[in-house]
């Protein structure tokens, strides 16, 4: 306790965005919840794809090439519907865990301008989630292709639309996580953020769909296409040259994958603007 002076060789460095990214990387990787969530993601992606590939039977059904590709994409991305819940929970916890424990005070004392801390968090969590999702989806696709072939479905791995659907699935998972982080920053509570995000993914689309079916109003079906999870799920739809097909069978609007991504990105941008304003203004 006698020596307090720092080693004189070290330069007196200040806050940098690179430093913030490294800090957020350390924070993300030093919690058990992160390791658990990503393990579940990898396990689900590969296991469900293998199950699908080994059990699917197309006897008696006739598929064209596009249909077979769509099935191959479905095999590799079958887990996305469940994985997005896992990633959404993790995305919320990334920020609400800091509010719940008080860590946010350390974070905002180290980065008192605040917004770089939020965006550092979003970048690190988004990139890590994207890369882990993409790796596990690609592994799932490669492992599943021979199983599908054994069941009469020949996936054409040289088809760019096939790969862009897989990349889209990983992108969708990363964006659903960031969506949850933005909600978490706004409401600052784990339970509240998770409830809202699950409501967006599971409850609201169902309610809108029921209304569309009851009323048979086309504008409600069209509205449904712009909900974050519905728009986002278009990111991993296999779209052959023949164009997109109507997934809900409601005769409503069908977004192209890039349009779906754009709609989801708009939602996230709006939420992040609100989150930024609140983060900047509120006492911590």
């Amino acid at each position: 306790m006698t020596t307090l002076a720092p080693t004189p060789t070290a330069p007196r460095s200040g806050v940098s965005f690179g430093g913030i990214l490294f800090s957020e990387w350390i924070k993300l990787m030093s919690l058990r919840s992160t390791i658990w969530c990503y393990s579940v993601l990898v396990f689900l992606t590969i296991t469900l794809a293998l199950l699908f590939g080994s059990t699917i039977s197309v006897e008696g059904a006739q598929f064209d090439a596009a249909g077979e590709q769509a099935l191959a994409v479905q095999a590799a991305t079958l887990s996305v519907g469940i994985s997005q819940l896992v990633i959404a929970v993790l995305g919320a916890l990334v920020i609400t865990g800091e509010y719940g424990t008080g860590m946010i005070r350390s974070t905002l004392t180290a980065v008192p301008t605040r917004l770089p801390a939020l965006f550092g968090k979003v970048v690190v969590f988004g990139v890590v989630t994207f890369l882990i999702s993409l790796a596990s989806i690609v592994v799932a696709a490669l492992l599943t292709a021979p199983l599908l072939a054994g069941n009469g479905i020949e996936a054409d791995l040289s088809d760019p639309a096939y790969w862009s659907a897989l990349v889209g699935a990983a992108g969708y998972l990363a964006l659903s996580g960031i969506f949850a982080t933005a909600i978490g920053t706004i409401v600052r509570s784990s339970a509240g953020a998770i409830a809202i995000v699950l409501g967006f993914i599971l409850v609201i689309p169902t309610i809108v769909q029921v209304f569309a079916l009851i009323t048979m109003q086309e504008w409600i079906a069209n509205l449904s296409a712009f909900l974050p999870s519905n728009a986002g799920s278009r990111m991993y739809a296999y779209v052959a040259e023949s164009g997109a097909t109507d997934p809900l069978g409601l005769g409503g609007l069908v977004l192209e994958p890039w349009q779906g991504a754009l709609v989801l990105l708009t939602w996230i941008a709006g939420l992040l603007v609100l989150a930024s304003v609140l983060l900047k203004r509120r006492d911590a």
Partner: peptide, 18 residues
């Protein structure tokens, strides 16, 4: 002002990294 799930050294590393 510390996340309870993180070790002391990782907490300090994260704060220092900024």
């Amino acid at each position: 002002a510390v996340h309870t799930g993180r070790s002391a050294v990782n907490h300090l590393r994260a704060v220092a990294a900024t």
